[in-house]
């Protein structure tokens, strides 16, 4: 039944209309928390107008106890109800936070996608399939997906509300987000962390396709233009998706799909921040001074990138 509901909503793009089980559970949590909290909050909301009306000064028939300042039983209820509700909610938080830990591997077999946040677009690298896409994430239906996130600029936050919540991506570090793809369809994702002028344009499309469709798409990209260091350096220049396409001399409604010519690209992007050398503003993607030719990626990492470990 779940599946059919997701299917009906498969074109919607927000948290309230999830298209995958993770976001679905997250929405269920929202509803559950609201109902449970109502046990403590509802009485207050109901009692406020009733008390204000009943004990208005013009009502001479109402009781009045000016010196009354405490009642043991009432005190126990007043502390007890919030404590009970919070205890229940705490147990829920304990369970749900572990259950929906974005770092928790969801399956042995998963599609691994390395994600590089740029100003103001997302680059998705598929190391196993040897392809790369800009602002387009293609996943096969029902499969577990493992996103490994970093940025090559300031901190960003990747969110695909209909599939999973958000996770920060930070330069020189990796963070992780696991989710299950839903049924075939499209939904949207975006950067949720403010990053400056083009921030609101940093959205991308998530395409859930059949297994066959996925293989076909991956295969078709083997003949796409190569994503090598030079192309990457151009992509990294700050600009909205439209501006980037114009800068690269391609049509604004074309998709940016590549064959991943540099398999070490992700590691080298991480390595940019671990060379032990200062990074001039011309060499920092996202800076207004950035020049592609001044921003060579390190050939080999001097230091292992600092992994943001999950203990």
């Amino acid at each position: 039944m779940f599946v059919s509901v997701f299917h009906l909503l498969a074109t919607a793009g927000n948290y309230l209309e999830p298209v995958g089980p993770i976001a679905g559970t997250e929405r269920a949590h929202l509803i559950k928390v609201i109902w449970v909290s109502m046990i403590a909050i509802g009485p207050a909301l109901l009692a406020t107008p009733l008390i204000l009306w009943r004990y208005r000064r013009s009502n001479a028939r109402a009781a009045y106890t000016p010196k009354w300042e405490g009642n043991r039983l009432l005190e126990i209820i007043m502390w007890g109800v919030p404590i009970a509700v919070v205890t229940w909610l705490s147990l829920h938080i304990w369970k749900s936070t572990h259950q929906l830990d974005p770092y928790r591997p969801l399956a042995e077999e998963a599609i691994t996608v390395q994600v590089v946040g740029l100003d103001w677009k997302w680059l998705f690298l598929y190391p196993d399939q040897g392809v790369a896409l800009v602002d387009e994430l293609i996943v096969p239906e029902g499969q577990a997906v493992h996103l490994i996130l970093t940025t090559d600029t300031v901190m960003q936050s990747l969110q695909i509300p209909a599939l999973a919540g958000q996770m920060y991506a930070m330069p020189g570090m990796t963070t992780h987000q696991w989710f299950f793809a839903g049924l075939p369809g499209e939904t949207r994702g975006f950067n949720a962390q403010f990053t400056g002028l083009g921030f609101s344009k940093q959205e991308f499309v998530v395409k859930t396709v059949t297994q066959a469709g996925f293989e076909e798409a991956m295969a078709s990209m083997q003949s796409a233009p190569p994503l090598d260091e030079a192309t990457y350096s151009k992509l990294a220049e700050r600009g909205t998706p439209t501006e980037t396409k114009l800068a690269l001399g391609i049509s604004t409604d074309a998709t940016l799909r590549f064959r991943l010519a540099e398999p070490q690209l992700f590691a080298r992007v991480l390595g940019r921040y671990h060379t032990g050398q200062p990074l001039a503003s011309e060499a920092q993607p996202g800076s207004a001074d950035y020049r592609a030719e001044a921003a060579a990626l390190p050939a080999a990492m001097n230091t292992m990138p600092m992994h943001h470990h999950h203990d």
């Binding site: 929202l30 609201i34 909050i41 936050s157 958000q166």
Partner: peptide, 21 residues
């Protein structure tokens, strides 16, 4: 009180993942 309710909602990491930012 309504603000408190939404605060409780946000205190849940699994929900916060969605409504943060």
């Amino acid at each position: 009180v309504i603000g408190g309710l939404t605060g409780i909602i946000l205190a849940n990491p699994t929900i916060d993942f969605q409504v943060h930012n």
